[in-house]
Design a binder for these strands. Structure first.
Lengths: 428, 428
DNA sequence: GTGAAAGCGCTAACAT
DNA sequence: ATGTTAGCGCTTTCAC
């Protein structure tokens, strides 16, 4: 491994000079010809800076910790990580990815990452929800991906800093999907939503509960429409305080609110019986079967593509052809299903890659204390909002951080990919 | 951040003494009482070693590079990485995960990882296949995960070292799955196999091609049965030389061979028409539909759970109940589908977590030049073979590496999870 | 403009 | 048995 010392010896200068030149700080300090000589020699000798030595000296590692909850079971985590990695690499950073499913592991992993000297953190979850950021991360630059921070009023960490986050615009997902179905002529539009498995029977399939849930979310429509995450501070979220387990309440409430708002805007009165919040497997399939038999919807908006599968199964069972007899729009959480059904299923794509990319740019700009150009982002399907975040001063005090604007929570628009699962003018 | 210097000052000894004690090298060098004092002070001051400084000094970073091809699109990569990470953490290592889909990116990522000073590499692919390890990795400890190395005879890098690898026992997957169906009483057992999308029509659905393919694989049965990967050195693999793209030939050939062998062992003569190698989406669905109509199998062994979906869809369409009218066994490549279908679909689980875990133990043992205990592996469903690999000497020469035994390719047994999709005694 | 020197936090060889 | 010293490769004053 070539070192600066060797280059210095070869050229006949000091290592200081080599360092200046190779770091581009030679402007007006080193004669151009000499600088050129140094650069050429470095090239010839195949020199690469030793990242570790540099880190020791500068106290910057150019490494970023990517903490995610439940990567192992999350098929789309890869896209997010890939996006973050691509952006990171482009700016000379490397990712240390780590997964933590419980508080103890989380603490250990954070400690480990700190000891390895990461410059900042990503904090990401398996499904969009409100999270508490561990206090031990308070002193570091951090960006939340596919989640947002629980406020103190919601029972969150009140001591904690406010961190920027990026998440899908859940309300708009529901709104766009439902609008697409309405455009196609559907009038009895079902929502196959999310319910935790242990109460998949309860919620939407029993009439009383359905109405209650419908009402609760109904009240949230106005707020959600303004881009706020109000209405998600519900009992469930609070009950799950401190837990790292899956809890897609934000996604569920947001998409449902969008669904209801779209119906309302088009003068369609939603029937609570159209809502079918299900868990997985047999019970879910049975619930969807009942929906087919009792409600006979002509359109289906599915919380995710995994749930769309139940609709496909039941359609087959009932001899209905999707894209002719009924229409289906799903949210593409799971790339696997895209592999199997993509040419058929109209989906709203969750821009995991883009969120990861954006988050990395944001994080690096925080770490380096300068704005980053978003221009070089490759193949970004979703528009990136401007980066903004108060910068730490030299003492490491992020003086203005605690007063950071709420707008740090960026909601990213997700595009609808039209496929044959939606009939031009559906009707049963 | 507390440093050794501060501890040394507080205790009144030199940093050298502190270093010895804190690294457990004080046995017979430092008085027990003093050592205890040092340890207590370190604890009180909240000391944690600075990994970067240590790395600079020791030339070991305790970081491992995890190179994977196409993580972003691979839902199960998470499990593998999780396994590797858990094992790594347990031994004080950290993972730098990186994904590369083309040769240029691969080169860049490898360079970057080297500069960050990783001690060794994982090399993993999206689906079990024969790979060439980039020559630039020849000087590092490396373990291949869910893949194996192409030999020179197969057209591989002849200059390269032989690296240990871990992969599923594909032959046995096919054998076990098919045996399970035979046990249940199935006699017309279809194989829904893998075909690249662009020729999903060609191979198994046209009679001539089917026979040819069947024959080719047939010849490989004997070899595969012995645990060798022979028969996989086929035209496809060679044609894909140097490409990083998906090419599940090993998995496809292995599972098919196992399927054929199981049938043969039970005296069932396989009909080439039973083989239905498909790609994805509409064409795949149509091919499976034809199979249902023309062949009417009573059992289905599916290359993966994604392909099992087509069977579920067609069963629904034909009013057949899975687990009563027909039986299905799939390979659980995609955890997402397990979420949706697991209580129904009998699967052979690919032990991604275990492979990652094993690979990490193997890699760390290579890095540290000592055997690692496998005893502490948590929840390993598959038995781990003993770790073995020649150790580099002090000069960094891995003298014996080039003569490493072929047994370094470890095939891991995958367990079958019985679910209701297989009828106790099926028959149509 | 350039070089000498100090030092980031740690470990290991070499004194005592 | 304990301490002293040198130095990993780099950056960064500060002299010249």
């Amino acid at each position: 491994m070539t070192t600066m010392k060797e280059i210095a010896a070869a050229v006949g200068v000091s290592t200081a000079t080599v360092s200046l030149v190779l770091n581009g700080r030679d402007k007006g300090r080193v004669k151009a010809a000499l600088a050129e000589h140094v650069r050429r020699t470095a090239e010839e000798l195949g020199y690469w800076p030793n990242a570790i030595a540099r880190s020791l000296r500068t106290n910057r590692s150019r490494m970023l910790g990517f903490i995610s909850v439940e990567v192992a079971t999350t098929p789309y985590a890869g896209g997010m990580i890939q996006g973050a990695q691509d952006a990171a690499r482009r700016h000379g950073y490397m990712l240390l990815t780590v997964s933590a499913d419980d508080a103890a592991t989380m603490r250990d992993e954070i400690d480990a990452l700190k000891r390895y000297g990461v410059d900042g953190f990503f904090y990401s979850t398996m499904s969009n929800r409100r999270v508490d950021i561990p206090e031990s991360l308070d002193d570091y630059p951090l960006v939340i991906v596919d989640a947002s921070q629980r406020t103190a009023e919601e029972g969150g960490n009140d001591s904690s800093r406010r961190f920027p986050s990026i998440e899908p615009d859940e309300f708009r997902i529901g709104y766009d999907a439902t609008s697409r179905l309405l455009d196609a002529g559907c009038r009895r539009i079902a929502y196959i939503g999310f319910a935790a498995d242990d109460d998949s029977i309860g919620a939407a399939n029993d009439n009383g509960a359905t109405t209650a849930a419908g009402d609760a979310v109904d009240g949230a429509v106005g707020a959600a429409r303004d881009g706020g995450a109000a209405g998600m501070a519900n009992g469930d979220a609070v009950a799950n305080a401190g837990s790292l387990a899956a809890d897609p309440t934000v996604a569920q409430a947001g998409r449902l609110a969008g669904y209801l708002a779209a119906l309302a805007d088009r003068g369609v009165t939603p029937d609570p019986a159209w809502q079918c919040n299900v868990g997985t497997n047999g019970a879910a399939l049975a619930a969807v079967a009942r929906l087919f038999e009792e409600v006979k919807p002509d359109g289906f908006f599915c919380f995710n593509d995994s749930r769309a599968l139940y609709v496909y199964e039941q359609a087959a069972r009932h001899g209905l052809e999707i894209g002719r007899d009924i229409s289906v729009v799903g949210v593409d959480n799971h790339r696997v299903l895209a592999e199997t059904l993509s040419p058929q299923l109209t989906t709203i794509e969750l821009p995991h890659y883009e969120m990861g990319y954006w988050a990395a740019l944001q994080l690096i700009s925080m770490v380096e204390g300068r704005e980053l150009s978003v221009a070089d982002a490759p193949a970004m399907t979703a528009p990136l909002p401007p980066l903004e975040w108060p910068v730490a001063d030299d003492d490491g005090n992020d003086s203005s951080a605690s007063t950071a604007p709420g707008s740090l929570d960026v909601k990213i628009h997700c595009t609808l990919i039209d496929k044959e699962s939606v009939a031009p003018a559906a009707g049963q």
